[in-house]
Nucleic acid binder design. Structure first.
Length: 402
DNA sequence: CGAGATTCATGTGAAGTATACCTTTAGGCTTAA
DNA sequence: AAGCCTAAAGGTATACTTCACATGAATCTCGTA
């Protein structure tokens, strides 16, 4: 038996997981603790849809990981189950945050059409044409109602404008025998205030707020899932408490807590530990943060990577001299870098926008400051933790062929 | 000395351009009657 | 004549550029005490 066989064979017996899926973020549990009230309320609002009646549009707030998406999905799943025979309902879920998938009006519509079974080219069509196509494909279906769930709408509106929401809410008047119910989900509590009053009133006919979980509730949730997910006796004393404490600090983000538990389990498994210990959670916390950032960096387009590399290098240098880094410095360094790699340089205008995007992504922190006589620029600070800087640089160097 | 003007380096908005892709339309070719 | 293919014409979204104006506090200027 080869050495590898041994490793492969031992996987089954060594695994700490009974059913890992339970801890993955796309898993929909049977019951959702501490959200009974909200679920009932949603169900109450959406119930008439079973009879094919148009219900109010619904708007839901709450910070990440408070069970918004889960609750909605739970209710709509039940609705679908009840409505499965008579085909009056259809539910579509769309996350508006996904870059390159749903970050423009055109792409959101294209994505919706795709989900409904049609197809549209990535570019070339006038937007109103795409609207027509959307209506067409909607009319062609059997279902009377479409429940459209737009997750993280605030992101979409920030990138586009609120007119497209208005267009969506107005589509109902163009549909002869179909109706659309829009459910908007947002993490940003102030989002509604920034909307045009017209859009606001039609989108948020009903509003709901999901409060964050407190540490006790988080523990409850984690316990339940841990029991389903891990084999008996695998979870050490205090692990659950620690996970929920971490997550409670992140304003009650349950998803974060579950991720933490799952990754901790994976780490423990990899380290051949028979139990998940508290130290695994600390490691998991680092790993999650790390993977998130590394993934963003890796998937960013080349020009963005060049800018980011410039930022990284300059901040590294500035650390020694205790100077700050500004837009101009970065642009100069970036230009040199482009020459070195033989890539076309973008204009400073564009690079400025790219820097702003990194700010949005949370990789850097860029604040506009005025240095009086010496101009006005963004002061740029890195948000990426020290301990993964080298790996970031590694990815960039490799990706750029430096 | 201090109020107001000046200045710098870039922020920021709007409009224009390049590219890649789409539909429509007209012409040319083939085919079947 | 009808059907099919192709190429040109006309159109769009997106990423980027160009142009022009906006910003805001350190510094300068100059009248005044």
């Amino acid at each position: 038996m080869s050495g590898l066989d041994k490793i492969f064979d031992s996987v089954g017996s060594r695994s700490l997981f009974k059913n890992k899926r339970v801890l993955q973020s796309n898993y929909t549990p049977e019951s959702i603790p501490h959200r009974d009230k909200q679920i009932e309320q949603i169900a109450g609002i959406l119930a008439p849809s079973l009879l094919g009646e148009k219900t109010s549009n619904l708007f839901i707030y709450g910070v990440t990981g408070t069970g918004k998406t889960l609750s909605i999905q739970h209710v709509t799943n039940e609705l679908m189950r009840r409505a499965s025979e008579n085909k009056i309902l259809r539910v579509e879920y769309l996350n508006c945050k996904l870059k390159k998938v749903a970050d423009t009006e055109y792409r959101i519509l294209a994505e919706l059409i795709k989900k409904l079974g049609g197809s549209v080219p990535a570019t070339g069509l006038p937007t109103d044409h795409v609207y027509m196509k959307f209506l067409e494909i909607l009319e062609s279906g059997d279902e009377k109602l479409l429940i459209l769930i737009l997750d993280e709408v605030d992101q979409a509106v920030k990138k586009i404008n609120d007119e497209f929401l208005y267009n969506l809410t107005r589509l109902n008047s163009e549909l002869s025998n179909k109706q659309i119910i829009i459910i908007g989900i947002s993490n940003d509590l102030r989002f509604l205030d920034s909307l045009d009053p017209r859009v606001r009133s039609s989108l948020s006919e009903e509003e709901m707020v999901f409060p964050p979980y407190n540490a006790v509730q988080l523990q409850d949730i984690l316990k339940k899932r841990a029991n389903e997910s891990f084999k008996l006796g695998v979870v050490s004393e205090g692990v659950i408490a620690k996970c929920s404490a971490y997550a409670a600090r992140e304003h009650g983000d349950a998803r974060r807590a579950l991720d933490l538990l799952r990754v901790a389990g994976e780490l423990a498994e990899r380290a051949s530990s028979p139990k998940i210990k508290i130290e695994h959670i600390d490691n998991a916390n680092d790993k999650i943060e790390r993977d998130k950032i590394l993934d963003i960096i890796e998937t960013e387009p080349k020009q963005f990577q060049l800018v980011l590399y410039s930022i990284l290098e300059l901040i590294e240098r500035a650390k020694k001299t205790k100077n700050s880094v500004f837009t101009g410095d970065i642009y100069n360094y970036y230009c040199d870098l482009c020459k070195q790699v033989k890539v076309e340089t973008l204009t400073q205008r564009r690079v400025g926008d790219i820097i702003a995007e990194f700010d949005m992504l949370g990789l850097i922190n860029a604040t506009v400051i005025s240095k009086g006589r010496y101009g006005r620029m963004r002061e740029i600070k890195l948000v990426i933790p020290e301990n993964i800087l080298d790996r970031c640089r590694g990815i960039l160097v490799e990706g750029l062929g430096l």
